[in-house]
Write a protein that binds this DNA or RNA. Structure first.
Length: 744
DNA sequence: GAGCACTGC
């Protein structure tokens, strides 16, 4: 790493990527940015060239000698990112997982998600799968399943993880001739699942990815005219529906992982039900991993439920005899108890967030040091989505034989990520869940009891590679009486304005069952502005801001701001013990009290000036991952500008123009200063405060426009910019009159 | 002077 300049480092990375991409094209006949990341990620985790081969095999990719050669080449070329790789001295000598616990984490490499993990789950299973699809549980049901699909327009399919439904059903449909009438779509909640399953199926069918089998996700469309089996994210299908409301080019839509109930799947349900009414030739398959599928069946007019058996190891569940007073304390005690009394096997603890995980880590370390050498080594790992990539690496590293791993995780380990080698799960029964009050437009994250479905999902994480045990830190009685059956679906907990906008564009006007503070007005939707707004995959207010930037000739700046805002609040990282430096770095973008929106733009521009340097991100306590995502979104927005005929224009020195564009989108989010530093929102008056992380927190401008209000310890406005009150009347005369902005 | 569960277009 020494001596490489900022740009040099990037070039080196790009050269490596280009090389990997070329090799993949030759070897597999396909390549894509995500696949390149995937391959490099594998090699980074590997401890030897043979290890790379092993990992490739796990994904069913090492089927030729050339690929073995590739493994050796890539291993020698990939730099050591985190720490010098130890030679694998701790071989898995018949242990039960301790010492070889493999963890597969998504964001290190942006590709491993649930469906891919299904494939890599058990090696023996995978090998047989690769040899012969006929050994899958689903195969015995092939003909009766096809018969059921033929007989019913809508079919609910229940199949546990590992039954092969995601990879096999589309192939069966292809074999049965459905693809002669149109494409078969299979939707996934996560990008990586769509991508990896498509790659898998293309291998099974012995075709090049992107030909007969393809995938389509945001930023990557890997399909062609030849494509008949199309894996895609559910949100992507939703976007396609805007252009093809009857889905005429499809003969079958399979909504996979429907039990996750994302907003997109829920919206798809409603639209598909409607489409099925006037397109009698289309088949709808709803696939769920939860046994209770009656809700899906009821929704689709009592559609029949088809069950496919799965494979799973038994999990022994234990409850506490009495309620525990402090679940964090109880969890730590349980970890130590398991460590001392139970046979080998790693431990997974579900906690609610970063802060809790970090304090648990401290306490555990302290307690263990008290035991000295009396007990075997316990290796502590942590995982949550905001943890920077380089710190996630610990979860991949082999641990000494005779020691045990404990993973402190958020909900990320419940469905998005699988850690192999876990035999024990500790479940305190809580998680953080988003709630959104549509009346006030306020969001909050609150610690809540989990649902029964969630508890069972957590327990199941211990039984993936062998029989498991789950220790629930609550009583059997409270499980029965206090836990809801299911987590309320996301659609009931989140801001739906962009969903509403999309549905309105589809001509669905009657959405008044929801109570919105600021529903997009009907007139906005039939004008050019409305159509332009719907062209952007963003919240309506962000889209409006971009559309307005045309008028103020600052679209170049505004799309950067929109991209940064839509990445969310995970731009900055503040590690334990370095908060002062992190704060200082963050405030350096606020010079001149420009406001948080302009500061975000400054962050983006500074990063761009370093040629998108990773090192720059580390130095400024900025999350690399978030910045790359912002860059992707910004690139997409730039392309979309052209489509809606907005010119890309910049006005780097006219901050007022940029602020006016922001105000055009967020005019309903205005607030004026009260006494004692509090603010009052102008319409629907409410007392709010500037979030302490804001660059204007100590500045108290008289008028501000804010991105959002969040409820934490107080009601805070997050991301605020100063505005002149007369702009409100100028920009949004239908919303504000002079009396609203007059001094009281 | 406070805090960021997890996805996706």
């Amino acid at each position: 790493m020494s001596g490489d300049s900022k740009s040099g480092k990037w070039e080196c990375n790009d050269a490596l990527k280009a090389w990997v991409s070329d090799r993949l094209l030759v070897l597999l006949g396909f390549s894509s940015p995500e696949f390149v990341e995937f391959a490099i990620g594998l090699a980074k985790q590997a401890t030897s060239a043979a290890d790379v081969v092993g990992k490739l095999e796990e994904y069913g990719l090492a089927f030729s000698d050339d690929l073995h050669l590739f493994a050796e080449e890539i291993f020698s070329k990939v730099p050591w990112k985190v720490s010098p790789r130890k030679q694998k001295t701790y071989e898995n000598e018949g242990g039960t997982g301790t010492g070889s616990g493999k963890a597969v984490f998504e964001d290190q490499i942006e590709f491993i998600k649930e469906s891919m993990l299904k494939i890599s789950k058990a090696k023996s299973e995978l090998e047989t799968l690769h040899e012969d699809r006929r050994t899958l549980p689903i195969y015995a049901h092939r003909d009766s399943l096809l018969k059921a699909i033929e007989e019913h327009q809508v079919l609910v399919i229940v199949g546990e993880t590992g039954s092969g439904k995601t990879t096999q059903i589309p192939q069966y449909l292809h074999e049965a001739g459905y693809t002669k009438r149109g494409k078969v779509a299979c939707t996934q909640p996560r990008r990586v699942a769509a991508m990896s399953v498509a790659a898998r199926v293309s291998q099974e069918m012995d075709v090049k990815l992107g030909h007969e089998v393809g995938y389509s996700i945001r930023f990557e469309d890997y399909t062609s005219e030849k494509t008949v089996l199309k894996y895609m994210t559910d949100g992507k299908l939703l976007r396609e529906l805007l252009g093809e409301p009857d889905l005429a080019s499809y003969s079958v839509i399979m909504v996979d992982e429907a039990h996750e109930r994302t907003v997109s799947t829920d919206v798809l349900f409603g639209l598909l039900k409607d489409i099925a009414r006037f397109r009698k030739d289309i088949k709808i398959l709803i696939s769920s991993a939860t046994p209770d599928a009656s809700k899906f069946s009821d929704f689709f007019d009592c559609a029949p439920i088809y069950r496919i058996p799965g494979r799973r190891y038994p999990v022994e569940i234990q409850y506490t005899k009495a309620p525990v007073a402090d679940y964090l304390d109880a969890a730590i005690v349980t970890v130590l108890q398991i460590h001392v009394t139970q046979p080998p096997g790693d431990i997974l603890v579900f906690l609610t967030g970063q802060e809790e995980i970090e304090s648990a880590e401290e306490i555990l370390k302290h307690k263990i040091s008290g035991f000295g050498l009396e007990i075997p080594e316990l290796v502590i790992c942590k995982i949550f989505s905001n943890l920077p990539t380089e710190l996630q690496a610990k979860i991949f590293q082999p641990i000494p034989i005779g020691s045990r791993k404990v993973v402190l995780a958020t909900n990320i380990a419940e469905a998005s990520l699988t850690i192999d080698g876990i035999n024990y799960v500790i479940d305190p029964g809580f998680c953080k869940i988003e709630s959104y009050n549509p009346r006030t437009g306020m969001e909050s994250l609150q610690v809540t009891s989990i649902s029964k479905a969630s508890a069972n999902q957590r327990a199941g994480r211990s039984g993936r590679t062998g029989p498991g045990k789950c220790f629930r830190l609550y009583t059997a009685d409270s499980y029965k009486t206090k836990f809801d059956d299911n987590t309320p679906p996301e659609i009931q907990r989140t801001n739906l304005t962009s969903v509403v906008l999309s549905l309105k564009i589809l001509g669905i006007q009657n959405l008044l069952n929801f109570d919105f503070m600021d529903p997009p007005s009907n007139e906005a939707l039939v004008t050019k502005v409305g159509r332009q707004m719907a062209g952007f995959p963003l919240d309506p207010m962000l889209s409006k801001m971009i559309v307005a930037s045309d008028k103020y000739k600052c679209s170049d700046e505004v799309i950067s701001i929109a991209a940064m805002l839509s990445v969310g609040n995970s731009i900055f990282y503040s590690p334990n013990g370095e908060q002062v430096h992190a704060d200082h770095a963050r405030m350096s973008f606020h010079t001149g009290n420009v406001g948080d929106h302009i500061a975000l733009m400054n962050v983006y521009n500074s990063w761009r000036e370093t040629n998108y340097s990773t090192q720059w991100c580390y130095e400024n306590y900025v999350q690399v991952r978030s910045m790359r995502r912002a860059r992707d979104i910004r690139d997409q927005l730039e392309r979309l500008l052209e489509r809606v005929e907005i010119e890309l224009t910049g006005c780097p020195n006219d901050l007022q123009a940029i602020k006016k564009a922001i105000t055009s989108g967020f005019f309903s989010h205005s607030a004026r200063l009260q006494n004692y530093g509090s603010y009052r929102t102008v319409k629907h008056p409410r007392i709010v405060h500037i979030h302490p992380s804001s660059g204007l927190a100590d500045n108290f401008p008289r008028w501000v426009v804010y991105h959002e209000v969040v409820l934490t310890t107080k009601e805070y406005m997050r991301n605020v910019t100063e505005l002149k009150p007369e702009w409100l009347v100028e920009i949004a005369p239908h919303y504000y009159q002079m009396k609203d902005i007059k001094d009281a």
